[in-house]
């Protein structure tokens, strides 16, 4: 499985799908996050690989 982490929240998705498909599955808008793999930004068409962790950086701020 692939682990996706956004702040304190964690999700698991199947490997082999694109990042965009994974975000759709866990109901996170791509417009609201950036995704990193080992600290490097990745694109939405990137294929997710078994055993990896994708960290999402929330980009919305304000108050």
């Amino acid at each position: 499985m692939v682990r996706i982490v956004l702040r304190e929240r964690e999700f698991e998705v199947r490997p082999g799908m694109t990042l965009q498909a994974a975000l759709d599955k866990i109901a996170i808008l791509p417009e609201a996050v950036l995704a990193t793999r080992n600290g490097e930004l990745i694109e939405e068409d990137e294929i997710l690989v078994e055993g990896e962790t994708i960290r999402l950086v929330a980009v919305i701020s304000g108050g």
Partner: peptide, 9 residues
């Protein structure tokens, strides 16, 4: 906002 976050990273 996403573009600026990408720039900072």
């Amino acid at each position: 906002e996403r573009e600026m976050a990408a720039y900072a990273i």
